[in-house]
Amino acid sequence: MTHIPDLQWWSENSQGTLIDRLGIELLEVGPERAVGTMPVEGNTQPAGLLHGGATAALGETLGSIAAWVHGGLDRHVVGLELGATHHRSAREGVVTGVATAIHLGRTTASYEIVVSDERERRLSTVRLTCLILDPR
């Protein structure tokens, strides 16, 4: 079985990255599922709504980390395709993303990431496919 670093490791290794800048906090990391939160504040568009790009970045972060764990931390994982459908938005609070594996192959991994608000209303559905490259 692949060793999965603890949440403290992920937090320490995210310092100075987009994960850190967006305020994403990882709550669960595994090859089949990853969960994280992100504050709305600081991640809005000028109209005060949660920015769709920030939402997509949350989704890509969760899916990519899960794919990295699936492929093995000695391998590179890069996004091949990212798509997001925004159903509604948020103006405040914290949003939660849950990445669930759709396909876990030897060279690709695909995830559906559901982003919801604090009332558990679906805000966005993000789809991500990652390419798993040979060891570094």
Rank of each mutant, 00 (worst) to 15 (best):
His86Pro: 13
Val114Tyr: 01
Gly72Met: 08
Val77Gln: 02
Ala101Pro: 01
Leu27His: 14
Arg21Val: 13
His86Cys: 09
Leu58Gly: 03
Arg75Leu: 00
Val94Ala: 08
Thr108Gln: 05
His70Thr: 12
Gly79Gln: 11
Gly59Lys: 02
Met1Val: 08
Glu25Gln: 15
Pro39Ser: 15
Gly59Ser: 10
Ser116Trp: 01
Arg127Met: 11
Arg136Ser: 07
Ala34Val: 05
Asp6Asn: 11
Leu82His: 14
Ile19Trp: 02
Leu27Val: 06
Ile132Val: 10
Cys130Met: 05
Thr85Ser: 14
His76Glu: 06
Val69Asn: 04
Cys130Gly: 14
Asp6Trp: 13
Ser89Ala: 15
Gln8Arg: 14
Leu123Val: 13
His70Tyr: 09
Thr85Pro: 02
Glu112His: 07
Glu120Trp: 01
Gly52Tyr: 04
Leu104Ile: 15
Arg122Thr: 10
Val77Glu: 01
Val98Glu: 08
Ile132Ser: 02
Gly53Arg: 06
Gly30Cys: 07
Ile4Ser: 09
Leu104Tyr: 06
Glu112Arg: 03
Pro39Phe: 10
Cys130Arg: 00
Ser14Asn: 10
Thr125Val: 13
Glu25Phe: 02
Glu41Met: 08
Leu104Arg: 13
Ser124Gln: 03
Val69Tyr: 00
Thr61Ile: 12
Leu7Tyr: 13
Met1Asp: 14
Ser116Asp: 10
Pro39Gly: 15
Arg127Ser: 15
Glu32Tyr: 04
His51Leu: 15
Gly105Ile: 10
Glu32Val: 06
Ser116Cys: 14
Ala101Gly: 14
Pro31Trp: 01
Gly105Trp: 05
Glu32Gln: 11
Val126Leu: 11
Gly97Met: 05
Leu26Met: 13
Ala56Gln: 11
Gly48His: 05
Val98Leu: 03
Gly52Phe: 03
His3Ile: 13
Arg119Ala: 09
Ala34Asp: 01
Pro31His: 08
